[in-house]
Design a binder for these strands. Structure first.
Lengths: 133, 133
DNA sequence: CAGCATCCAGCTTGATACTG
DNA sequence: CAGTATCAAGCTGGATGCTG
């Protein structure tokens, strides 16, 4: 069969998520991870401050948000703009690359949100037939 | 600001990933999780048997693959077809819903793979300016 | 081949307290 | 406000052994 993995090898594409050691896998995890996806989604609307983000992404701890933002900033998806005022003010916003990623991610998210009825129905069927152990 | 969260509330959309308790968040995690994304990606090419999948998704353990497949099957994204032969043969394939999800996911994955040079460059810049602690 | 059950190390996460 | 530091706990995930 002609798989994307094989195609990647044939064409000498430099990056392939399916390979364990490929750095793209790490980035994919930052992007799609529990908090990464929601953070990118929240920032898609525009720049937000740290605590605004925290309120939007329901359930993140300070620590996880901070960690997530660092990873996304390092990967060049989020830009951090700090004003040395008092009290301090820091804005986070998507870079152009981050925008493109967030757009695709939100496409997926909204698609899923729109199909949750199907998903929930599938779950019920599954749990029923297998006796919900 | 007009956020997607607020829009969801205004329009009484039933599902919103940004809310902690929303079931869509769980499904999003199955789909985008470490192994979920790669499994869906691998199955996008066509049906695969358990050990074929295992070889394709470089690095999954038996246990994680099994767990991942169960979650995806329960959510109605993957169909499991078992033949009661000896030796047993089980094929996994995407449902129509799973196909749509996988397509969007692969769009994101391929986009990222194509931009990894930018990501890697951003990382270097980040590590340099901050002294790579 | 296609898995499930069990054990356990260690990484992730959340609370809490503290700093600039 | 915008974080960092620290610590306990729990969940993730790998290794192993076994079944049909």
């Amino acid at each position: 069969m002609d798989t994307s993995q094989e195609r990647a090898a044939e064409q000498d594409l430099p990056f392939n998520v399916f390979a364990k050691a490929c750095p793209s896998r790490g980035t994919l995890e930052h992007v799609t991870g529990r908090w990464g996806a929601l953070t990118l989604g929240a920032l898609h609307e525009g720049a937000l401050r740290f605590n605004e983000l925290r309120r939007r992404v329901d359930g993140v701890s300070e620590k996880m948000l901070s960690q997530t933002l660092h990873a996304l900033e390092r990967d060049g998806l989020v830009h951090r703009e700090a004003q040395p005022t008092n009290p301090p003010r820091v804005d986070y916003e998507l870079t152009p690359l981050g925008q493109e990623v967030a757009t695709r991610l939100l496409g997926l998210i909204h698609f899923l949100e729109g199909r949750m009825d199907d998903v929930l129905a599938a779950r019920e069927r599954y749990d029923d037939t297998r006796g919900a152990r």
